[in-house]
């Protein structure tokens, strides 16, 4: 079976929180994974003492284990790929063509 690196949603309603997990592809989202590589908190936060700063998102990641799993053929999902690319583990996926900005429709 394919081993995937993907996000597993935890948290409460309207306050998502993700575990970055290594798991078999056909197992349920909330089931026990092979390994928890880290976490991803998608809620942007501001620094308390620096309110002008750019909002940040916190990611915890065990880079060594992530590299190992990639090395043995685990397949990251697109979202997990983006996170691993930011951490410098994967090559970022290049988009085909220039990104199109959505046109705002007039009411």
């Amino acid at each position: 079976m394919v081993v995937k690196i993907r996000l597993a949603r935890f948290g409460r309603s309207n306050s998502p929180f993700y575990n970055i997990v290594v798991t078999h592809a056909r197992t349920a989202r909330g089931s026990r994974p092979l390994e928890v590589l880290g976490t991803y908190d998608p809620v942007p936060k501001k620094d308390t003492y620096d309110p002008d700063s750019k909002p940040h998102k916190d990611i915890k990641l065990d880079v060594t284990r992530a590299k190992y799993w990639i090395g043995v053929g685990a397949q990251p999902t697109d979202t997990a790929h983006r996170i691993l690319a930011m951490a410098g583990i994967m090559k970022p996926k290049v988009r085909q063509g220039t990104p199109v900005t959505p046109i705002r429709m007039a009411h």
Binding site: V36, S53, P55, K60, L61, M86, A87
Partner: peptide, 16 residues
């Protein structure tokens, strides 16, 4: 720390 247009992604090393 990775800066994108809107957010800064802050990575923290952990051990499984």
């Amino acid at each position: 720390r990775v800066n994108t247009d809107r957010f800064q992604f802050r990575f923290e090393g952990i051990s499984v």
